[in-house]
């Protein structure tokens, strides 16, 4: 086995153990003590009169699964965007795809159109917003040759969405405003146990589709022209990539609100750790590191909860932003 393959295997094992550890910690570290038996029973033999099982099923399991899925899915999105746009600073948040979700959710929740004011309505809105902005980015990417211009288009989309949202906020009622603001802070606690099936289904389907992107992603590190000369159909690939990103980040944003920096920081961490450009390995890395990242963030939030409430978005920015600054400094130093 070559040293690169060995490096990947060793790190993958370490990260998998870390992920499981974080998951366990997130389930059992809260201020209310719950045993492992309660965990098993709450899933297979649920008794709502037992407080321990209730805590497990209603709070701990949904938020741990949500953290795991959101972290890994957002990281995978980031990796897809970074390779598609050939830019290590790309991500669903930077490119404005999350802004699309925010805009649509804001329109739904701040204008009082009650049709959308249930869980599925919010998911649909976030998803549509992500798709719409994804398509705009996609169309721009066909016309624009330089990636930096594309990032600027993403930023502009973001600030346009921000402008509309601010206007909506100015006219919204206090209650609507509070609901929307809470949504933007991001939360891993809004998913209910019965929604986990849907959540898990969508995310794992989209993640499985990524396996078909490995070949074009690997070729695309050489640039679009070269990838096309290696027999890759760039149009199909672009379409599928933006679609998967929109589905993943749209779903996550719908359930958890816009979560910043995970999609940007984690793929870069995976690249530094694995030192490879092979996207099968990087996808595995993003999945494992991303999941652990948000689970750890949630453990931190749970630990701090008795003292003060930290919104997940604040925490990821707080951890993520310095990582990005470090990467930029290291790159251009």
């Amino acid at each position: 086995m070559s040293s690169a393959a060995q490096r990947f295997r060793n790190w993958a094992i370490v990260l998998a153990v870390l992920l499981m550890g974080c998951f366990y910690l997130d389930l059992f570290c809260g201020s209310y003590h719950v045993s492992f038996t309660h965990f098993i029973e709450s899933i297979f033999n649920y008794d709502s009169n037992d407080t321990s099982q209730l805590v497990m099923r209603e709070f701990r399991i949904p938020r741990a699964v949500t953290a795991l899925l959101a972290g890994s899915a957002l990281s995978v999105c980031g990796l897809l965007m970074q390779t598609l746009f050939n830019n290590p600073l790309a991500g669903p948040y930077v490119l404005g795809i999350s802004s699309g979700s925010s805009l649509f959710v804001a329109i739904g929740s701040l204008t009082g159109i009650h049709f959308f004011l249930n869980d599925y309505g919010m998911i649909l809105l976030a998803f549509l917003g992500a798709i719409l902005f994804g398509v705009i980015i996609l169309i721009s990417s066909v016309r624009i040759r330089t990636q930096i211009s594309l990032l600027l288009v993403g930023l502009m989309l973001g600030s346009m969405a921000g402008a509309v949202i601010t206007t909506l906020e100015a006219t919204a009622s206090a209650q609507e405003l509070r609901a929307y603001t809470m949504w933007t802070m991001g939360s891993l606690q809004n998913t209910h146990f019965d929604q986990l099936g849907l959540f898990l289904g969508i995310i794992s389907m989209a993640l499985a589709t990524c396996l078909f992107l490995i070949k074009p992603l690997n070729a695309l590190v050489l640039g679009e022209d070269h990838a096309s000369l290696l027999g890759i159909n760039i149009r199909h690939f672009r379409f599928l990539t933006i679609l998967i990103t929109a589905v993943l980040s749209g779903t996550i944003t719908a359930f958890c609100g816009p979560i910043a920096f995970v999609g940007l920081a984690v793929p870069n961490m995976a690249k530094m750790l694995f030192k490879t450009a092979s996207h099968l390995k990087l996808l595995v890395g993003c999945f494992l590191i991303g999941g652990s990242f948000l689970l750890l963030a949630d453990v931190l939030i749970q630990t701090l909860e008795p003292y003060f409430l930290v919104p997940v978005n604040a925490l990821t920015s707080l951890i993520g932003a310095p990582i990005i600054i470090y990467l930029i400094l290291k790159r251009w130093a």
């Binding site: 070559s2 690169a4 396996l211 078909f212 490995i214 070949k215 690997n218 070729a219 590190v221 050489l222 290696l230 027999g231 890759i232 690249k271 694995f274 030192k275 490879t276 450009a277 092979s278």
Partner: peptide, 23 residues
Amino acid sequence: AIPYLSVTEYVLLGRSPYTGLLG
């Protein structure tokens, strides 16, 4: 000059036309 792309990985990319859907 792509960071983290080894010579072997790079040369293997030349085999992309012959690999299947999963590469």
